[in-house]
Amino acid sequence: MKVVLVMTLSLALLLSASCAKKPQTADTGADAKVTTLGSIEVTAQLEEIPGEVRNDPLYDYAHVMKYKVLQVQRGKVDKDTIYVGHYNPAKPRDAIADARVPQIGGNVKQFRVGDVHRMALEVPIDDYYMGGIINKYFGQVNDPIYWAIWTNKVSK
């Protein structure tokens, strides 16, 4: 039992050291990719991930998520709420590009409701991505679906 206690205490110390080591700095998510790729660039808050995000090794899917637009950096976005398809969202963005979808990426590791993302987008998704699209809003929302090319995390 002593071993467990010692290890837990060590990890707690490491944890606090780690927390102290990295002060939170504001990050707008801007980088060379997100500011140049696609025809639209927005900063938006992830409001909803409907249903279960599939992590199927046999197939690749885009999953449509709901965002609240906070700022439009490039292009035109008519509504405050947009629907964005992310390719294989169970995987981190820096490891997402493959032979079929080679030019997408970003630094988001995990999609979580409430997080703010800076995204380079195209619309409509069917013009840029031919494949499975899990869209739980189908039939309920007639807005165009955006295709996420680059997705960076924004921290406050």
Partner: peptide
């Protein structure tokens, strides 16, 4: 549509 022939 990979893996999506039923509905997608």
């Amino acid at each position: 549509n990979d893996g999506g022939a039923s509905t997608l």
